[in-house]
Nucleic acid binder design. Structure first.
Lengths: 212, 212
DNA sequence: AACCCCTTACGTCTTTAAACGTAGGCAAAC
DNA sequence: GTTTGCCTACGTTTAAAGACGTAAGGGGTT
């Protein structure tokens, strides 16, 4: 039986180690390597060339999107599967554009992860069922959508607002200054003609920027 | 042709007078009387016994729900039609329970109002199409609902939060102290396990407390 | 080269929200 | 007839949001 090597890129040590243990229970996994951010991963790519990479999106130093772009530039046939807690549109579309061949949510089952690996090794793309549903829903919503005038960054900030994050929190996850997030929020209020957070969230829900 | 008398109970003078003019264009309307709150209306019920009453819900002194209850207690066959800006569930279910025979939104057409009058005079109930849709939607949502543990008052406050009102605003429309609304909000945060307004709004959307 | 748009960022001030605690009145349930 | 749950309400303190204004730097367009 052919065995495969896997590279986990994730800043959450606990998650990384848990997934490593899970993967090691599979008899066709030969080795599991780890990195805690994009830079570390890219640096060790020359030494360790994995069959599959699981890539987190939100990471310090260098996030999953930039890392994927760079890695695919260096090794175009690298099999990268995005691993994210959130299935929001910004994330999966950007990861796919960057060259990822799969997208799996962190609340998926090991079975999902296995499916993703099998498909990707077979040269196919893979997105988990949940993401697939969201994609289909978002296509329906796009039909009569009126939020094109929000920039990508604004939608991203809005998404995190809906998650209940404060501006400081958002600044932390996006690696920005809090004052920048303040400004994005201010612009969002103006653009969506809202008075406060409640209005922003309602707008996001109505326009499919967050899933209900 | 039989002619009918109408009583408008609404604290918004401008709206009352506009509707009065509209109704007077109908040749089967004999007279339109007015009151600016529930107490005034009840006091004059002995003098003026209208065929139809249009009752606002949010009013100072005595709101539409309490007024309807009292009026129906005094004159069980009174035809009361609720007139509200909002079609939220708290409102229409409570008005119907109180004895109202119709529910029309303030953004309806005169045709809607005429339909409501015709149906109610005919002994039927009437809710405008929009409310009917919401009722049907809310039945679907009720299937897997988990927000029974929010009290009616809490749901009402949450509804207004979603409308973008501040606590002071909500206190004004519900005729409460701001500090009371503060407390309801605090309890909502605790009960729904939310950190902030965004979480509350998302909860409300998920559980059908507001319509999208 | 000049332009527009987006992203990033800072300063200051006012208003709201959030996080504690406490407590009386009231109606329904037991 | 006491308990229980809900609605009402106040005081204080800290954190966050909201409302202005300003501006540098990057990327793409014309």
């Amino acid at each position: 039986m052919k065995k495969y090597t896997v590279f986990l890129v994730d800043d959450h040590k606990l998650f990384r180690e848990g997934l490593k243990l899970l993967l090691e229970t599979l008899n066709y996994i030969e080795a599991v390597w780890e990195a805690e951010n994009g830079k570390q991963f890219l640096a060790s790519l020359n030494l360790h060339k994995p069959d599959i990479v699981f890539m987190d999106i939100e990471m310090p130093e260098m996030d999953g999107i930039a890392t994927t772009e760079k890695a695919i530039e260096l090794f175009p046939d690298l099999n990268i599967i995005a691993l994210s807690i959130y299935g929001n549109e910004n994330y999966y579309t950007r990861m796919i554009k960057a060259g990822a061949k799969g997208f799996v949510l962190k609340n998926s089952s090991l079975q999902d992860v296995e499916n993703a690996m099998a498909n990707v090794l077979n040269g196919d793309n893979y997105v988990s069922q949940e993401i697939l549903n969201r994609l289909i829903n978002s296509i329906d919503k796009k039909k009569n959508l009126n939020s094109d005038f929000l920039t990508e960054r604004e939608k991203e900030v809005l998404f995190h607002i809906c998650r209940g994050l404060s501006n400081q929190d958002i600044a932390n996850v996006l690696y920005l200054s809090k004052r920048t997030v303040d400004k994005h929020r201010e612009n969002l209020l103006f653009k969506t003609d809202s008075k406060n957070t409640a209005g922003l969230v309602m707008y996001a829900v109505k326009n499919g920027i967050v899933d209900i």
